[in-house]
Design a binder for these strands. Sequence first.
DNA 1: AACAAGTCCAACCGCCACCAC
DNA 2: CGTGGTGGCGGTTGGACTTGT
Length: 266
Amino acid sequence: MKKQVCTNEEFKRGAWKPEEDLILKRYIEANGEGKWTTVSKKSGLMRSAKSCRMRWKNHLRPNIKHGQISEDEEDLIIRMHKLLGNRWSLIAGRIPGRTDNEVKNYWNTHLSKRNLNHQGQSMNSVTFNCKKRRSMVSDTNDTQQTISIVSTKQQDESNIFNGSDERVDAQLSNPSSTTSTSSGAEEVNAVQRYATSTTLDNSAAGDIAKIISEEEIYSCWLSDEPTFYVPFVPSLDYSILPFDSLDNNYEDCWTNKLRLHDLEED
DNA sequence: AACAAGTCCAACCGCCACCAC
DNA sequence: CGTGGTGGCGGTTGGACTTGT
């Protein structure tokens, strides 16, 4: 049987010309965003669906901000990266007008080296960056969730983080046994989809994992100590909490969360 | 002026989740 | 339930441009 192969040779590649931009822009304005294979076929551009999508998303979409990243934006990127790791789309989602590609490029070219230097001088922190977040192992046992996070070894000096090949198993106590407001199933899904484990400081009393989704952040200790579970509090923007191991004020964050948790219980 | 090295960023690639069938 | 198509994501690459020698 003859196998149907879609070769890249069918599609034009390389830099987009202004006239191609115009065609794509007009097509999407007339027909709406999405259905990129249809865009690819019907626009007459001879570009792949992915290429069309990428061009629209990163350059042609309305409200895209071009030009220099401001100090405020830079500060936000650094803080968000500290919190989320290389979750560029999530970080970009918090910076109006900036794309994930732009944020990623900016980080790689401007900030990663600077942060390496800063890190070397001031602290010895380790980040487990969950590269393969979707391949995490999750035990769907009713009473306990075991989340296995495979960290990536980062030997390159230019990388800001000291890496580890270790496998981190975070034991989350059963959500249904806590006072969490959402269902256990929802929480497990959130954890499975968007887990990132971050230890903030080697000197901290136990390692801390932040389990993050777009709207929710869960927290637990990764040490041998009994784990606890902090429910999401909708009124609180966790991303702006001062997670700064230099000041050790993450302790306050934890305290704040627990206090809010207690209030919710009341 | 010419070349090498470094920097930047648009574009591409591979992987994976989701969904329709 | 399995499969194929699609879209989204993060990592990487390649070439244009800049800076240094």
